[in-house]
Design a protein around this nucleic acid. Structure first.
Lengths: 201, 201, 201, 201
DNA sequence: TATGAATGAGAATTCATTCAT
DNA sequence: CATGAATGAATTCTCATTCAT
């Protein structure tokens, strides 16, 4: 059969993206074959080339889309305040929410940078850098205002992001811990870590 | 030519291990070919099979060896004290030292679990679990003795290990930060994170 | 180049089957490489995998197809009579005709059972058994009716089939003996062997 | 350990021959590896080269030795008589005995001619031809003396040898049939087949 | 006499990719 | 928009063979 009635390009492209993220998150980029993606979508491998020029470019688009989403979404959600404590709390909340909601994308974005061609890697790393800078900015301001006791905002950024992102490796919706509690727990640990004066949890 | 004078098995095996760790850390297990490993060692690909029965088993042996090393070494190095703060300090020191010294092994051990066959994964995950349990034990004891303020020893274990292990992704010997300072910085952040009373830094 | 104009799947599959039978009959299954088959067909080795999932499965399909052909064809050709002598004469005729016409298939079916995986071997041996049973049935009936003097129908089956099938190892169309004479010669020998009363030669 | 006390070259060579026949009979020449032979003997693969210059030559030696044995042994055992019926009876007896006793050698000799290099094949086929000629001679004489009714001594040779040799594919010591009965059965069938006047069984 | 290390060629198989239809 | 046939290069892995010791 040629094509399911009502299918169209946009739908197919989205199905490819979704299948790709799933499979790459599960098995890694190198271990994921276009055949497997195509099979999940229900098309022939050649069809993928109507939407993405190569396997590598598919990965790039996935990562760029994801990081773009994070950046855009934070810009929308970030509270209007300038209070570093408030901002840090909001960032932790945002990060964990988006990283549990889009686990697979996050996982891929963290694991598969090395699978990118150099130019693409630079591009993606640049985007990620912009996301890290959000946290660094919050911490820096907090240090300056005396709200945080931290020796180095940049290194603390790495430490806190690693901690938060690590959630994705073990947290599963429906386990003993709800998402709300998870966020509360991590908020408290991050606040302590940052040496925030007002630890209320 | 049969045998290059002076070559011997033990040396070749070690060279294969080392080349494999290097390349797998750099490009991932799936993206690493036996050809590439062999080329780096200076042998033919088939030679690897004198030492490892398959590519997969090579990975297993690398990971088991590494985790065995961590477990053994901690048993040797851990201070005689029962003081949780002292133990946590020692653990952070140990973890960062071993994880910067053996960066590549650590990286591989964290990334490539999914490349293992199920039975091998269980084995390796079991070993890793034993290592995690060391930290959980320290935190648990500290919580009970009132030395740490943490809501959950297990989750704090994940958080702290993620934070510490993340060091491997950005720290390079010879950068602006010395290893001693690095350890001090992280010790301080971990202590704050754990809510340790005596934060002296 | 993607597709040679005019090529199509069914033709390619048949060409692979034919080349495979030829080469396996000539050199044996283990000694036959997919490369060699592909070369004879005029495609790349990988192309074979569009049609057969593995080299082993290719052999299975060849054998099953051949034995299926024998079984079907005998069902079509066997004379309506119940006379064992008439049936034996027809069987010898049928067997030699099909075994000289499809020499290569027969040869492979007799030689390469050991190259099959156990489950496949059981399947193929089952089919071959059904073919043997045709002859055993004829002999059995002939013994009971007194038309044949044979001590054991089963063993006589082995003996006669070995004798008939052996033709394939030396007979070549165009030699000093025509196919008709060949069949007559063997019919006479088989009849004598079976101790048939009416030996008219 | 270098070598088992008391081991010596002759013993090793014999062990290699024996292991080779076993494995080649079981899996075919192409499917039999020198590694497997060496393992069964308990030596390293390289050791085989002290005794045989190549894998192919090993096969040649096995076949030549076997056919030489048949020729020599028949020369020793053949009855002094000139009576074709007596000689045929003795030949059937001899053939089945030697072909059940040395099943593996026979099997290999029948299956693996195609694995020989052309020159070796000619040599081995020549020896086999001499063995066939023994039977052809007996049949020819019997036809001339009127003891057998056969249209063609050469073709009858093929038919009878195929029939007799086929025994090796299904007969197993210890089955429902003893070797004595087996020989009697086949003697009777061969005599009938040859149209021998005096069928006493 | 035998080992153990290694080679190099070649095996089956997989896969991203192309393109006429 | 999508298929189905095919490519060609690469992959893991195997094996007969060599040879210093």
């Amino acid at each position: 059969m040629a094509r399911t009635t009502g299918s169209d390009g946009a739908r197919t492209e989205e199905a490819i993206r979704s299948a790709a993220i799933d499979l790459i998150a599960a098995h890694g980029f190198e271990a994921t074959t276009l055949r497997a993606i195509a099979e999940r979508v229900g098309v022939q491998p050649g069809t993928i080339y109507r939407y993405f020029p190569s396997k590598g470019q598919l990965l790039v688009e996935l990562l760029v889309e994801h990081l773009g989403f994070l950046l855009t979404q934070w810009a929308l959600e970030r509270p209007a305040t300038d209070d570093p404590v408030e901002l840090l709390r909001a960032f932790v909340d945002f990060h964990i929410r988006s990283h549990t909601l889009r686990r697979r994308e996050v996982f891929v974005a963290n694991m598969e940078l090395r699978s990118l061609a150099p130019a693409d890697r630079r591009h993606v790393v640049g985007l990620r850098r912009r996301y890290e800078d959000i946290l660094t900015g919050i911490l820096q301001q907090g240090i300056e205002l005396g709200a945080f006791r931290l020796p180095d905002a940049r290194i603390a950024t790495f430490a806190i992001l690693a901690m938060l992102t690590g959630v994705g490796t073990w947290f599963h919706e429906g386990g003993r811990l709800g998402k709300r509690e998870l966020i509360d727990l991590y908020t408290r640990m991050v606040m302590q870590c940052a040496g925030a004066e007002t630890v209320s949890a």
